[in-house]
Structure formats: structure tokens, C-alpha cells
Amino acid sequence: MSEMNLFERYLNAVAERLPEKTREDVKRELRANIEDMLPESPTQEDIREVLEKLGDPARLADEYRQTKRYLIGPNLYDRYISILKLVIGIAIIVFSFIGVLQQIVNPAESIATAPVDFITGFITSILGTAIDGAIQAFMWVTIVFACLERGGLGEGKLSFGKKNWTADDLLSSDDAAKSKISRGETVVGLVFSIIFAAILIFQPQLFGWYEKGESGIVNVTSFFNIDRLQAYIIAIIVLTALQFILSIYMFIVMRWNLPLAIANTLHNIASCLLVFFMLKDHAIVNPQIISRFADAINRPLADVTMSLSNFLSAMVVLFIIFYAIDSIMGFVKSRSIKLPPMKSEQ
């Protein structure tokens, strides 16, 4: 009985690693094959020998599956590691900064009555948010790379839709220099998406008006009406995630191409729409901050409301101009649009 047990255990160890669809058939076939390899009324030793000849069930199951046995393949691995370091570094800085803000705004202990506790609380809070940031960064970078790997980027298909490499793909050094995405450009993109995610998604109340209250406590009046902001949160998360993916993609391909320019433009249009609706939505601004601000500068509330409204409209226009330029530059740099040569160019 125990030798049959060994046999069954082996079959199950292989089968459990296989997709449901093929499991039963593979098991049935493997059972027949192993029975064929065994003599009549086999001893425990016979079974052992045959199973050991077939080898590790995990390896055998891998042979049966023939799917990717890795999350991130060798083609993307180096870039994965360098982006991971970069993003974790940025996330630690941004999240530590948020940790500091949180402690200033909302300390667990008062610095006046319990300075030691205040400092311990301060350090723990910063360490906590920094570790949180690092873990989030690790998770998201890994998820994005695993998706890119499964999307076929690992097999050298660096730009979508391109089938075979031809000599025409070699850029002149002039074109190569112009289409190159600088590391700085990508880092800026990543920093912005991380700051956005960290503040708007996780800690929106930190974006506000800071003033010194009684006994050294800092009072903060949130700029946003947090409840109202929640209505936009899904759109913010999606767009931030897209920005993040785009930045990583840019980091991998290292130069502009047409699909990237199109994706960038679509992302920019969506961002413009979001900014437009958010800033045009008067309910999104916390009414308290308007009265605080009016008090602070000694102006009537109506004036401040009016100026704020103008300021927000100006912001919308600025955003649209910024995104429009960014989109056009993407096309120009991907060499899809040729600009007339400028005088300053050599």
C-alpha cells in the first residue's frame, strides 16, 4: 500500500503544477507510462527507482507546461533592477517627506511636554512611511515589469507593431540624439507620478494652508474638500498608474517612437480632462480654506472666492498649454513630425 502511495504522491505532485485543463489527461497518460516502466507486482524499490529516473516532479511539470518560468526575463532584468533602485530611492524620499509633514501637523506627542517621546515618534513615523513607500515602489515596479514581460517586451519587441529589424532602423546620430529620452526626463516623470500618488491618493489633507497654532502646534487647513476629492480618486489612480507605466516604458525603450507619442498624447488629454473637471468643480475646494485665506490677507470673502476662481481657470489654461507642448514634443522627438530647422541648431 505504501509503495502505491509513493506512486500516487508523485502523480499528484506533477498534476497539481499543471493547468486544470490538461491535468487529468496528463495524469492518466503518465500513470500508464509509469506502470509500463514497472515490473509485474512491483516492490517499493522498483517504484523508487522508476520515479527517481523520471526525476523531480516540479521539473517534469515544467516540461509539460512549457510556459514562462520567470516573472522578469533576462532581457528586461538589468533595466528592472536599475528602475527598481531609482523608484525605491524616489519613493523613500517622497514618503519620508510625507512622514515629516504628518508629524509636524499631527504629532503623537507634544514636543514641549515629552521631547524624547516626540523624537522617537518622529523617527518611527518617518521610518514607517519610508518603508511603506519602498514596499509600494517595489510592488508597483515589479507588477509593471511582469506585465511588460507578458506583453512581449522581453523578447525584444521593444516597440509595438514592429516586426523585423531592418538597417533603416539605425538612426543617424543626429536623429538618435534628438529622439533620445534623457534619464532626467524619465526621472521627472516618475517623481511626479510618485508625489501625486503619495499626496493625492494617500494623504490629500497634507495639501493645504499651514499656520502656527497655540503652543507650537501646526494647524493645517486642507485645500481640498476630501469627501469631494474621493469622487475623482479612481480617475486619479488610473492616470497616475498610466503615467508610471509610461515612464517605465520610456526608461526601457530610451527613445521616442510613434506609439509612445500617441500613448503620451492620450494620457495628456485624459489628464487635461481630469484637471479641467476637478478645478472647475467649485465643491472640490474646502470652503474653510477660502475663509482662512481671506482672514489672513484681510480681504472680503467674495473677493477671495473670485480670485480663486480666476486663479483656477488660469491653472486649467496653464495645464492645457503644458500638456499640449508635451504631446507635440513627443511627436517631434519621435521624428513623426519634422520641424523646420531652427537657427540655433548646428
Partner: peptide, 12 residues
């Protein structure tokens, strides 16, 4: 040929 190589190969 190794049985562990052949069986999966046949399916493939």
C-alpha cells in the same frame, strides 16, 4: 532518451 523528457515532448 530520458523518459522525463520524452513524455512531455510527445504532448508538445
Amino acid at each position: 532518451i530520458d523518459a522525463g523528457t520524452l513524455y512531455p515532448l510527445l504532448r508538445r
